[in-house]
Write a protein that binds this DNA or RNA. Structure first.
Length: 558
RNA sequence: GCGCCUGUAGCUCAGUUGGAUAGAGCAACGGCCUUCUAAGCCGUGUGCCCGGGGUUCGAAUCCCUGCAGGCGCGCCA
């Protein structure tokens, strides 16, 4: 248990015991004991912890908040606890001031846990599937995928730090309409390159990459496939280009710091019979019916306005159909306790009906959650530029990384919460790269490394040190930030907001930079020097842990 | 028309289960390097928390309603 948890539990216990005693004394009576909430006040002079319990009770107790607070405070037993003093403030807050020694606890924890500091067992034993990006493999990834990738990958790390057994998964849309269109586009380019005068499909993929694929393909195979049946030829072309694209995706994402545990093929759902099986389950449950030659899902049974098509009149299952089968596979076949997807805002309409469908097939849809990420708008020359994959106009992920760098890209896309709308100013991003907060954080790490390099002799970390030397307000502040880290991870997990960790690193770096300017580490006073070395080593460790979650380098020199 | 997201300082955004005097960064201005990295620190100013109602001890936060922007509402994915 980390220090913050301990303190919180200890103080809540003091309050609970005090409340019992107060009730026994007959100062007031209540029907039902409230849940005790503690908060860390913004204002430092409001103490270290604060509770509003006295303000929750007036109605039941029929007494004024301050009266309740005073009665309660009489009965609080703080002897032998971490609490130094208690006081009533404002409309009836009870504020707790702690003995300052608690601060040093975090240093011990960090020293003993090292790169494990911040990990929790809260969700130990549970499996967690996180699906993200899942970009169509019909072309290169773009900037929108970069945001989804950063969010998903970091969310996965946060879940793992919270104790989950995490699987990072990429769903390959290698079946259905998109792929047919992909095949049409490839085929048209193939034949055009070989001299046939045929039109390019109107809704085909116009990107250069399609042409490039076919040029390469022709370099290997020439016009051998021209005489094939069109359908067969398309199959060959699709397989060729798809594999090329997937290889590229894997390497591009690897370069971006993302490595998946599972690449799951949509086509495999067809091949394995999972689609048919799912249809059977839906039909048996009475949630599928036929109309106008199509098979429909009774989404209206789950609050939707209209039903959705599962199998088109032409016999082909919809994307929705495959997605139901896919999630049944996750929950039923692979038995994941929890499945989370990161989707762009343009897919949010899909959430409710998929949840409905999962309920229909007997899955507890509460274990399925979607992080909706607002779309990235691209600003170029101060104007909104439309990103279109089909027309090949999107900024490629690889270009972005090359220009901005992996660290800055990951950091930048995690600076804001997923549901904030995001304008990506291309000109600014390139120009601003020096101004990017990622350098601010990395600089703190590099500075610490620099100090340690210059120490006359290594400080023996096994020797006991008098932490009580650390008394400056910058030191206290730094210690508090360090002790917040474990809880910050849990909150980020609960809220599914990875940007909290990014902001945490900024806070920690700011705390360090302030300390650095206010206090010297290499001082004459050996005890103080040792204590400060312990402090900055702890900061370095936590920076490494936090940046590790973000997938950002912690450089030793800058 | 219906649904989801957003609206907080000049700009980009935080704001924990409703809490005390609403906070950061950027931009602007003024200081701090013969001493551990100035990619840094310290200081100065700014608010109709989109408008209007309501709930209560207490609202940026919850409810209703209006306005503005983004995104959906397909036998596309």
């Amino acid at each position: 248990m980390y220090i913050r948890e301990k303190l919180s539990a200890e103080i809540k216990n003091i309050i609970a015991l005090g409340l019992d005693k107060t009730l026994e004394s007959g100062a007031f009576s209540i029907d039902e004991k409230p849940e005790i909430f503690l908060e860390i006040p913004r204002e430092k002079n409001h103490g270290d912890y604060s509770t509003n319990i006295a303000m929750q009770l007036p109605k039941q107790a029929k007494k004024a908040p301050r009266f309740i607070a005073e009665a309660l405070i009489e009965n609080l037993e703080i002897q032998g606890t971490s609490v130094e003093s208690v006081e009533i403030a404002g409309p009836g807050f009870i504020n707790f001031r702690l003995k300052p020694q608690w601060h040093y606890q975090a240093l011990e924890e960090i020293k003993s846990l090292g790169d494990q500091y911040g990990k929790s067992q809260k969700h130990a034993g549970k499996t967690y599937n996180l699906e993200f990006i899942s970009a169509n493999p019909t072309g290169p990834m773009h900037m929108g995928n970069a945001r989804g990738g950063a969010i998903g990958d970091i969310l996965a790390s946060i879940a793992a730090w919270s104790g989950y057994d995490v699987t990072r998964e990429f769903y390959i849309n290698d079946a259905g309409n998109q792929i047919a269109k992909f095949g049409d586009s490839l085929d048209a380019r193939y034949r055009q390159l070989l001299g046939e005068d045929i039109p390019f499909p109107e809704d085909g993929y116009q990107g250069e990459d399609i042409t490039d694929h076919m040029r390469d393909f022709i370099a290997i195979n020439g016009n051998n496939y021209l005489k094939w049946e069109e359908a067969d030829r398309k199959k060959v072309l699709i397989e060729y280009a798809l594999n090329k694209n997937l290889d590229k995706m894997k390497s591009d994402l690897g370069a971006y710091g993302i490595n998946y545990d599972v690449w799951f093929s949509e086509q495999s759902l067809y091949d394995s019979g999972a689609i048919d099986e799912t249809i059977k389950v839906l039909k048996e449950g009475g949630y599928a019916y036929e109309e106008n030659g199509a098979l429909w899902f009774k989404a209206t049974a789950f609050g939707s306005e209209k039903d959705d098509v599962l199998i088109r009149a032409n016999g082909l299952p919809t994307y929705f159909m495959a997605d139901i089968a896919y999630h049944m596979n996750k929950f039923v076949d692979r038995q994941f306790d929890r499945c989370v997807n990161v989707w762009g805002a343009d897919h949010h309409g899909h959430v409710a009906r998929l949840k409905g469908a999962l309920t229909a097939v007997g899955v507890n849809a509460d274990n399925f959650e979607v992080v909706i990420m607002q779309l990235v708008r691209l600003l170029r020359d101060g104007e909104v530029a439309r990103m279109s994959k089909r027309k090949g106009k999107a900024i490629a992920l690889t270009d972005l990384i090359e220009e901005v760098g992996v660290d800055a890209t990951r950091f930048f896309f995690n600076l804001r919460s997923p549901d904030s709308h995001f304008d990506f100013d291309l000109d600014l991003a390139i120009e601003q790269s020096n101004d990017n907060p990622v350098f601010y954080v990395q600089y703190a790490h590099a500075r610490i490394c620099s100090i340690l390099r210059q120490m006359d002799e290594e400080v023996n970390m096994d020797e006991t040190v008098d932490y009580a030397c650390l008394v400056e307000k910058e030191e206290m502040n730094l210690l508090e930030i360090l002790s917040d880290f474990p809880e910050e991870i849990l909150v980020a997990e609960e809220k599914m907001d990875p940007s909290r960790i990014t902001r945490y690193t900024i806070d920690l770096a700011a705390g360090f930079h302030s300390f650095y300017n206010a206090c010297r580490v290499r001082v004459e006073d050996v005890e103080l020097m040792k204590a400060r070395v312990h402090l900055i080593k702890a900061v370095r460790q936590v920076l490494q842990n936090a940046l590790g979650i973000l997938g950002v380098e912690a450089p030793e020199r800058m």
